[in-house]
Amino acid sequence: MAEKHLSHHSQSPEKNNNEDVNSMKGTMVSVGFVAAVIVVMWVAVFWLYMARV
């Protein structure tokens, strides 16, 4: 835990900044949102299909 704490503080502000600039977390969340829309819509219409057959 202490090691983790130290290593966090030993990173330079520049490195932190670069990491933030190169981050792809937002892309991952956005693509996840696309997947969620696809799944929710598909399941909803499939549910309608099952209810009607």
């Binding site: 933030d20 600039v21 981050s23 792809m24 937002g26 892309t27 956005s30 696309v34």
Partner: peptide, 28 residues
């Protein structure tokens, strides 16, 4: 189409972050 979604989100995130956007979705 899914490849396009990934690529475009990445372009937006990269550009938004270069302009100072921070956090998970601050780049938007």
């Amino acid at each position: 189409s899914l490849m396009t979604a990934f690529a475009m989100f990445h372009v937006f995130e990269r550009t938004g972050r270069q302009k100072g956007g921070r956090g998970l979705l601050g780049w938007l």
